[in-house]
Amino acid sequence: MTIADVAAHLGVTKSTVSRALNGYPDIAEATRLRISRAAERLGYRPLSHAQAIRTGRVRSLGLVLQIDDEDSARPFLANFIAGVTQAASDENWTITIATAESEKGVRETLSRLVDEHKADGFILPRTLLHDKRVEILRAQNVPFIMFGRTADPTGCAWYDIKGEDAMRAATTRLASFGHTRIAHVPGGEEYTYSRLRIGGYREGLEAAGIAFDPALIGPPALTRQAGDRATRALLALPEPPTAITFAVDRAALGAYWAAQALNIRIGADVSVIAYDGVPEGAYADPGLTTFAVNSRQAGERLATLLIKRIRGAAPEELRELAPATLIERGSDRPPRLTPAALARHLKTQTNI
């Protein structure tokens, strides 16, 4: 089966078939889909090296992961990669995945893949407020899409989850239960999502008519150990919070360690709501109320949008935001104690 056979079958020119299969922007999307589906049905398979010579594209999407990140083993990673791979495969593209052990290593690996033309564009997960990966790719005019947002959106396409909306909803939910001292534990200060979620928390306080108290912003936390420390620090305040929102689930799970050590109970004495939807949250006692992310869908959309970007779509046209989904469990309930009563109880405990 040749390209001429496909063209004859459809009654179009060889050039139209070639340009459609190679993603040229002058071919209408409906035409491209009709030709690509017909080519697949007829069994036409272009030679990848020949396509690369003609178009300058290797039909591969790049993804560089930092493996020493404190939360790099997030369970959603397998589903995320599955989503990226499936969407790429649907377009007859492949995925080039590499790893590095530091931010510098990620940038060096990214630059090497660009120089070696191992990928036509890149997915950038976990974006920073000031992201040097973005600067590298933007300077070299290499297509990319972010899983997240960044401080300077110039030339950026993205798919992101509205974590700020989730934190706003978490805060107003706790306020509706009767909590008036609601704290927030942010993620890493360098991450864009952390700033957005703090903003959502503050919007929730405002919507509930609760004054913002900067003392109720805990230390940044990405791990259980850091979440444990942040929870203890907040509960050591003269007027401790009776509820805490966490930017990430793994830090929230550390609150359970702190509660056990302080002889208090999550959901009864201190309510907790977090964000991510990691599987471990379902097995906590009580289960962790959280806002979950559909990581497979995120991977699919990122791959689909990146292919469109590579084919010439403007980055400003490729910006999507999706909602997180609330999973209600037992970690958030109406307060059993007032902040003053909780403070008195905590004073009787040790290791705070």
Rank of each mutant, 00 (worst) to 15 (best):
E189Q: 14
A313K: 13
G218D: 08
D120F: 01
G287N: 10
L33V: 14
T350F: 05
Q140M: 07
A313C: 13
A175R: 02
A258M: 04
Y191W: 12
I352Y: 00
R329I: 10
Q349D: 05
T127M: 08
H130A: 12
H49W: 11
A341R: 11
A78K: 10
Y283A: 14
A151T: 07
K162P: 00
H179C: 07
I264A: 07
I97T: 15
I198Q: 14
G163P: 09
G254H: 02
T127L: 12
A52N: 07
L61V: 15
I198C: 05
P25A: 12
T171Y: 02
T171G: 00
G200V: 01
G178D: 07
G254M: 02
V64S: 06
G199F: 04
L61W: 05
Q260V: 10
A282M: 09
T109L: 02
W93R: 05
R126P: 00
A139L: 09
D152A: 04
I123E: 08
R232V: 02
R74K: 12
V248S: 07
N79E: 15
I67V: 15
T180P: 00
E320F: 09
S111D: 14
P214F: 08
R57T: 01
K132S: 15
R197I: 03
S331V: 11
R224G: 00
L346P: 01
D26L: 03
T31G: 03
S89D: 13
R309T: 03
S18G: 11
S18P: 02
I352T: 13
M1E: 08
I307N: 01
P286D: 05
H117V: 07
T325L: 08
A208E: 07
L318M: 09
D69P: 00
G199K: 01
A343Q: 09
T154A: 13
L216P: 05
T109S: 09
L346F: 01
P75V: 07
A243C: 06
V64E: 05
A324F: 04
S48K: 14
R112A: 13
T180N: 02
V134F: 06
L235R: 04
T231L: 03
